[in-house]
Protein backbone atom coordinates (compact mmCIF):
# COMPACT_ATOMS: atom_id res chain seq x y z
CA UNK A 1 0.00 0.00 0.00
CA UNK A 2 1.24 3.45 -0.99
CA UNK A 3 1.41 6.41 1.42
CA UNK A 4 -1.60 8.73 1.00
CA UNK A 5 0.47 11.86 1.57
CA UNK A 6 3.61 11.52 -0.54
CA UNK A 7 2.06 8.95 -2.90
CA UNK A 8 5.55 7.44 -3.17
CA UNK A 9 6.76 5.27 -0.32
CA UNK A 10 5.23 2.17 1.13
CA UNK A 11 2.77 2.87 3.93
CA UNK A 12 3.49 1.43 7.34
CA UNK A 13 1.14 3.44 9.55
CA UNK A 14 -2.60 2.71 9.14
CA UNK A 15 -5.09 4.99 10.84
CA UNK A 16 -8.84 4.65 11.09
CA UNK A 17 -10.88 7.39 12.67
CA UNK A 18 -14.58 8.07 13.09
CA UNK A 19 -15.33 11.73 12.38
CA UNK A 20 -18.93 12.92 12.54
CA UNK A 21 -20.12 9.34 12.29
CA UNK A 22 -18.14 8.63 9.14
CA UNK A 23 -15.17 6.31 8.98
CA UNK A 24 -12.02 7.73 7.50
CA UNK A 25 -8.87 5.75 6.75
CA UNK A 26 -5.37 7.05 6.14
CA UNK A 27 -2.25 5.13 5.23
CA UNK A 28 1.11 6.78 5.84
CA UNK A 29 4.74 5.93 5.29
CA UNK A 30 7.10 6.25 8.20
CA UNK A 31 8.71 9.62 7.28
CA UNK A 32 5.35 11.24 6.47
CA UNK A 33 3.83 9.97 9.72
CA UNK A 34 6.69 11.53 11.66
CA UNK A 35 6.49 14.77 9.69
CA UNK A 36 2.75 15.09 10.36
CA UNK A 37 3.36 14.35 14.01
CA UNK A 38 1.25 11.23 14.08
CA UNK A 39 2.14 10.04 17.51
CA UNK A 40 -1.13 10.63 19.26
CA UNK A 41 -4.02 9.80 16.94
CA UNK A 42 -6.52 11.68 19.05
CA UNK A 43 -4.63 14.94 18.67
CA UNK A 44 -5.64 15.66 15.08
CA UNK A 45 -8.39 15.10 12.58
CA UNK A 46 -7.70 13.07 9.50
CA UNK A 47 -9.56 15.49 7.34
CA UNK A 48 -7.09 18.21 8.38
CA UNK A 49 -4.18 16.02 7.59
CA UNK A 50 -5.28 14.72 4.24
CA UNK A 51 -7.38 17.37 2.66
CA UNK A 52 -6.13 20.43 4.44
CA UNK A 53 -9.67 21.27 5.47
CA UNK A 54 -10.96 20.71 8.92
CA UNK A 55 -13.72 21.84 11.13
CA UNK A 56 -13.38 25.54 11.61
CA UNK A 57 -14.34 25.26 15.23
CA UNK A 58 -11.38 26.42 17.19
CA UNK A 59 -10.48 24.94 20.50
CA UNK A 60 -10.87 27.89 22.79
CA UNK A 61 -8.84 28.15 25.91
CA UNK A 62 -10.56 29.53 29.00
CA UNK A 63 -10.51 33.31 28.84
CA UNK A 64 -10.17 33.14 25.09
CA UNK A 65 -13.77 32.08 24.50
CA UNK A 66 -15.78 32.87 21.37
CA UNK A 67 -17.90 35.87 22.37
CA UNK A 68 -20.48 38.01 20.56
CA UNK A 69 -19.17 41.56 20.58
CA UNK A 70 -22.64 43.02 20.19
CA UNK A 71 -24.16 41.48 23.32
CA UNK A 72 -21.39 39.68 25.23
CA UNK A 73 -22.97 36.24 24.81
CA UNK A 74 -20.46 33.37 25.00
CA UNK A 75 -20.09 29.90 23.55
CA UNK A 76 -20.53 28.33 26.99
CA UNK A 77 -23.82 30.20 27.52
CA UNK A 78 -24.98 28.78 24.20
CA UNK A 79 -24.01 25.28 25.26
CA UNK A 80 -25.82 25.75 28.55
CA UNK A 81 -29.28 26.73 27.29
CA UNK A 82 -29.29 26.27 23.52
CA UNK A 83 -30.48 29.82 22.88
CA UNK A 84 -28.61 32.80 21.51
CA UNK A 85 -28.06 36.27 22.96
CA UNK A 86 -29.00 38.53 20.04
CA UNK A 87 -29.46 38.50 16.29
CA UNK A 88 -25.77 39.29 15.77
CA UNK A 89 -24.88 36.04 17.52
CA UNK A 90 -25.86 34.19 14.35
CA UNK A 91 -22.86 35.63 12.51
CA UNK A 92 -20.58 34.88 15.47
CA UNK A 93 -21.72 31.34 16.33
CA UNK A 94 -23.30 30.57 12.96
CA UNK A 95 -20.81 27.94 11.82
CA UNK A 96 -21.02 25.95 15.02
CA UNK A 97 -24.82 25.95 14.69
CA UNK A 98 -24.86 24.67 11.13
CA UNK A 99 -25.09 21.00 12.03
CA UNK A 100 -27.88 21.65 14.54
CA UNK A 101 -29.81 23.74 12.00
CA UNK A 102 -29.39 20.98 9.44
CA UNK A 103 -30.62 18.38 11.90
CA UNK A 104 -33.77 20.17 13.05
CA UNK A 105 -34.92 21.84 9.84
CA UNK A 106 -35.96 20.87 6.37
CA UNK A 107 -33.27 22.99 4.72
CA UNK A 108 -30.63 25.54 5.61
CA UNK A 109 -31.87 28.39 3.44
CA UNK A 110 -34.89 30.56 4.24
CA UNK A 111 -37.45 30.48 1.43
CA UNK A 112 -40.43 32.01 3.23
CA UNK A 113 -41.62 35.53 3.84
CA UNK A 114 -39.15 38.40 3.55
CA UNK A 115 -39.81 41.74 5.28
CA UNK A 116 -40.23 44.59 2.79
CA UNK A 117 -37.11 46.41 3.91
CA UNK A 118 -35.00 43.33 3.24
CA UNK A 119 -36.64 42.55 -0.06
CA UNK A 120 -34.35 44.86 -2.03
CA UNK A 121 -31.29 43.29 -0.42
CA UNK A 122 -32.50 39.80 -1.16
CA UNK A 123 -33.30 40.72 -4.74
CA UNK A 124 -29.75 42.00 -5.29
CA UNK A 125 -27.93 39.23 -3.49
CA UNK A 126 -29.94 36.63 -5.38
CA UNK A 127 -29.25 38.39 -8.68
CA UNK A 128 -25.51 38.71 -7.99
CA UNK A 129 -25.28 35.07 -6.89
CA UNK A 130 -27.00 33.99 -10.10
CA UNK A 131 -24.65 36.10 -12.26
CA UNK A 132 -21.59 34.74 -10.46
CA UNK A 133 -22.84 31.23 -11.03
CA UNK A 134 -23.25 31.89 -14.75
CA UNK A 135 -19.80 33.51 -14.87
CA UNK A 136 -18.26 30.39 -13.41
CA UNK A 137 -19.93 28.24 -16.07
CA UNK A 138 -18.83 30.61 -18.82
CA UNK A 139 -15.22 30.41 -17.63
CA UNK A 140 -15.28 26.62 -17.45
CA UNK A 141 -16.70 26.55 -20.97
CA UNK A 142 -13.96 28.99 -22.04
CA UNK A 143 -16.70 31.29 -23.28
CA UNK A 144 -14.70 34.42 -22.52
CA UNK A 145 -16.89 36.84 -24.42
CA UNK A 146 -19.86 35.85 -22.27
CA UNK A 147 -17.67 35.90 -19.17
CA UNK A 148 -16.57 39.49 -19.83
CA UNK A 149 -20.18 40.54 -20.30
CA UNK A 150 -21.21 38.82 -17.06
CA UNK A 151 -18.34 40.38 -15.15
CA UNK A 152 -19.54 43.85 -16.23
CA UNK A 153 -23.09 42.95 -15.23
CA UNK A 154 -21.91 41.85 -11.80
CA UNK A 155 -19.98 45.11 -11.30
CA UNK A 156 -22.97 47.22 -12.24
CA UNK A 157 -25.34 45.12 -10.08
CA UNK A 158 -23.00 45.55 -7.15
CA UNK A 159 -22.83 49.30 -7.73
CA UNK A 160 -26.60 49.50 -7.90
CA UNK A 161 -26.83 47.49 -4.69
CA UNK A 162 -24.52 49.94 -2.89
CA UNK A 163 -26.63 52.87 -4.13
CA UNK A 164 -29.86 51.15 -3.06
CA UNK A 165 -28.44 50.47 0.39
CA UNK A 166 -27.41 54.11 0.80
CA UNK A 167 -30.87 55.36 -0.03
Amino acid sequence: MICDVCQDKHATVYLTQIVDGQMQKVNLCDPCAKEKGVTDPTGFALADLLLGIGSDEKVNLPGDELTCEACGFTQSELKKNGRLGCSECYSVFGEGLDSLVKAVHKGTLHVGKVPTRYRVTKQFTDQIAELKHRLKIAITDENFEEAAKLRDEITSAEDEFVCAKEQ
Binding site: G82, R83, L84, C86, S87, Y90, L97, L100, V101, V104, H105, T108, L109, H110, G112, K113, V114, P115, T116, R117, Y118, T121, K122, T125
Partner: peptide
Protein backbone atom coordinates in the same frame (compact mmCIF):
# COMPACT_ATOMS: atom_id res chain seq x y z
CA UNK B 1 -42.89 45.47 10.07
CA UNK B 2 -43.70 48.96 8.76
CA UNK B 3 -42.71 50.36 12.14
CA UNK B 4 -40.50 47.67 13.59
CA UNK B 5 -37.07 46.79 12.23
CA UNK B 6 -37.08 43.00 12.39
CA UNK B 7 -33.91 40.95 12.84
CA UNK B 8 -33.61 39.06 9.57
CA UNK B 9 -30.97 37.70 7.24
CA UNK B 10 -31.32 36.14 3.84
CA UNK B 11 -29.97 32.76 4.83
CA UNK B 12 -31.60 32.19 8.21
CA UNK B 13 -34.76 34.22 7.66
CA UNK B 14 -36.27 35.68 10.83
CA UNK B 15 -33.66 35.43 13.56
CA UNK B 16 -34.98 33.90 16.76
CA UNK B 17 -33.56 33.28 20.24
CA UNK B 18 -33.74 29.54 19.68
CA UNK B 19 -32.33 28.14 16.42
CA UNK B 20 -35.27 25.71 16.24
CA UNK B 21 -37.54 28.63 15.27
CA UNK B 22 -35.32 30.13 12.55
CA UNK B 23 -36.58 30.87 9.06
CA UNK B 24 -40.29 31.52 9.06
Amino acid sequence: EENIDYAFDNQHGYLTACPTNLGT
